[in-house]
Design a protein around this nucleic acid. Structure first.
Lengths: 207, 207
DNA sequence: CCATGTGAAGGTATTCACAGCC
DNA sequence: GGCTGTGAATACCTTCACATGG
């Protein structure tokens, strides 16, 4: 199965597995079977086995998966085996919350720089990161930052992305509720929070 | 095409279309064709037409779609045609940011109540909403609140969801990085922000 | 002539069932 | 006996090409 195109859906699930593995590593067990992991993360066991099988033979029949080793493998696949230096643009309400959010560290993602237009915010320290003016974006490359989070108002989203692309960033998580264009060497994931909530009523039984 | 199961992916795209339509309604035009909308929202035109066709004939051949009318139809499909009263549980960094976030209003979602354990937060007004103690969750039903956003620490996520389900909530947007269980009459969408960022490096060319 | 709506084709992902291994 | 890994079957979604209607 090793030579095969990896489904996008599989890639989407890998971080779920990784999170589950890291949590169960804290519980002292050394191995976990696909069925236990399935209950833990809410993905069926056959789906889990199939997903892993795309990358190689990680498990031992009759035993299960070695938790530590599997976690390491998934990190390698997701390219999270090195610490990823990340920049945040837009230190408003959402941006500040993201700076304070400890969850990124779980995946080795480290927000090491923050930028904002507002001169009154520049120079302040928020959650241990000093806010810089937008001009600082220009030398992200020299600072080995290749990932960015965009949490600016919609009107300046495209300009922000342009500046980031110019600065050599190659992955962007966009919290802005609009489509932004970029050369295809740059991967953009857009996460519109309100939109997620918006499809909830559809699934709710009457009322 | 009217009697047909609606693909989940179609439902996921409806809010995108809705956003695009509302934005182009502000520009004075009355009609829009699938091709223009396609460029606007970043979904191919045939996909848009197919998606709409599941629900009926919304367009006029040779002309396109009547923007206002189509927006109204999509709102009705998503059950966003009435204002949805929403509760927020957990007024930490993320919770506060969500309270301040104007995007929910776009879809007729209105955060009208906020709850937190911390007695020092209780009684404070944040973005126009007064923070209440957790005991207030019990009478969400009387207050006609059927939607909730959970932004509490992971450890208390399940307990929070249990309380919300008990109080008659039927849709939950969960920002907690863990799976939570609920009776299937309650729809839960989990949004783990860090996880989205975590799959970005996979798609980045070397480095 | 232009743009919609949709059967049919093609592609992708999920699910099953079981052979193979510990 | 227990659990993995996977070909084959199924279900699902996307894409195409065009008949149909304004």
């Amino acid at each position: 199965m090793r030579y095969h195109k990896i489904p996008d859906e599989t890639v989407r699930r890998l971080p779920i597995y990784l999170r589950g593995l890291m949590l169960s590593a804290d519980q002292g067990r050394e191995h976990i079977c696909s069925k236990s992991l399935a209950e833990y993360v809410g993905v069926p066991s056959w789906q889990i086995r199939k997903d892993f099988s795309y990358f190689g033979d990680f498990g031992t029949p009759g035993v299960g998966y070695h938790i530590e080793r599997l976690a390491r493998e998934i990190k390698k696949i997701l390219r999270l085996d090195v610490i990823r230096r990340t920049a945040l643009v837009g230190v408003g309400d959402l941006g500040s919350a993201l700076l304070a959010y400890p969850g990124f560290r779980t995946y080795g993602l480290d927000i090491v720089a923050a930028f904002d237009v507002n001169p009154r915010k520049v120079g302040k320290r928020i959650s241990g990161v000093e806010v810089e003016g937008l001009e600082g974006i220009a030398d992200l490359k020299q600072r080995k930052i290749s990932l960015a989070i965009v949490a600016v108002p919609r009107e300046v989203a495209q300009a922000t992305v342009d500046a980031l692309v110019e600065a050599g960033v190659r992955g962007i998580l966009n919290f802005t509720p609009c489509r932004v264009a970029a050369p295809k060497r740059v991967k953009i994931i857009t996460l519109d929070i309100a939109m997620e909530l918006a499809r909830l009523p559809y699934y709710m039984p009457a009322g």
